[in-house]
């Protein structure tokens, strides 16, 4: 079985679905002959042609609007925004149109599109290339927000996102594009879009994270074994709609929860999970829910980004605090 990294898994999923469904069209800046700046679409234009894998003019509002228009006519566009820092001019199209088309027309028109974008810090990228604004999209009714954390989940979740009848924001943690290799079966199997994935069983604390931070979260869980602390690790994977039940079930067992994300803390998606834990799981809690997150600062340029991003030590400290609480 071939071992693939995350970006190769994205490429495999795109290729599989281009071959399987002629309604799938890929569009974006440099996705054609260049194969995307991260090579997500490498080889696809050569294999499927310029009609199926389309370089667009350099205009993000256009990319999103064209995707909405194509999707309204029954195609399944997969649009790439080169970096999350350039995604904001698509928000009008996503919020006012993509997320509402089905509702506005009582199901007459739908918007089965995927908007892919690499996100997050840690690769020493230039300004505006390293932010994590997943919470902004998770706030918009009618969308799905999906974030893979491994090659296998990238493959399965992207296939499911392309096949989903509703618009999906698919955010790819670029820090781990090439960090991990994993066996990925290229058999076209999608993964469910409404469930968290429990990556590690544990009994003392539940660690909840998504995207690249799962890497540090799992390292922390591993090291905590030495302290005799058994941590359960949950990959949220589909932020919207959120499978809160898996998290609640885990916390009802462990009694403690630490949420880890690299986005800024205030009104970050961790706040939603913490709020729901209090609403539905207060009596299971043995300690306050803790968050380990990026700071409420502007994402610094890369000489300081390692100080901005949460690290293994911070996660371990937070876990110790909740375990030793009370």
């Amino acid at each position: 079985m071939p071992e693939l990294n995350l970006i190769e898994a994205v490429n495999k999923a795109l290729a599989f679905e281009l071959a399987a469904d002629e309604n799938v069209v890929i569009l974006g800046e440099d996705v054609g002959v260049n194969g995307g700046v991260f090579r997500a679409t490498v080889g696809l234009q050569q294999r499927f042609g310029e009609q199926r894998v389309l370089d667009t003019p350099l205009a993000e509002t256009l990319i999103a609007g064209v995707a909405v228009g194509m999707a309204s006519q029954g195609l399944r566009p997969v649009a790439e925004i080169q970096f999350m820092g350039f995604i904001y001019s698509t928000v009008d199209q996503i919020l006012n149109h993509a997320s509402r088309l089905r509702n506005r027309t009582r199901g007459r028109l739908t918007c089965p599109m995927v908007l892919r974008a690499p996100y997050g810090g840690g690769i020493h990228a230039p300004e505006h290339h390293s932010e994590s604004y997943e919470a902004m999209f998770a706030h918009i009714p009618g969308l799905r927000v999906v974030i893979p954390s491994s090659p296998a989940r990238a493959y399965g979740l992207l296939l499911a996102s392309i096949r989903d009848p509703d618009p999906v924001i698919f955010l790819e943690p670029k820090r781990i594009y090439r960090l991990i290799k994993q066996e990925v079966v290229d058999n076209g199997d999608g993964l469910p879009l409404d469930t968290c994935y429990t990556l590690r069983q544990g009994s003392d604390v539940t660690l909840v994270s998504w995207g690249a931070m799962l890497h540090e979260t799992q390292q922390a869980a591993e090291q905590l074994v030495n302290d005799g602390i058994s941590a359960e690790v949950i990959d949220v994977a589909t932020l919207k709609p959120l499978d809160m039940q898996t998290i609640l079930d885990s916390v009802s067992k462990t009694g403690r929860c630490v949420i880890v994300h690299e986005a800024a803390r205030t009104a970050g998606f961790g706040a939603e999970i913490a709020a729901q834990l209090l609403e539905h799981g207060l009596l299971s809690l043995l300690a306050p829910v803790k968050r380990v997150t990026g700071y409420d600062t502007v994402m610094p340029l890369y000489r300081l980004e390692e100080f901005y991003l949460p690290g293994v030590d911070q996660i371990i400290t937070a876990v110790r605090e909740v375990v030793e609480f009370g």
């Binding site: 609007g65 909405v68 228009g69 194509m70 309204s72």
Partner: peptide, 11 residues
């Protein structure tokens, strides 16, 4: 207007 471009592209 960008959506109209998408509709036309689909055609």
């Amino acid at each position: 207007i960008p959506q109209a471009a998408g509709v036309a592209l689909a055609m």
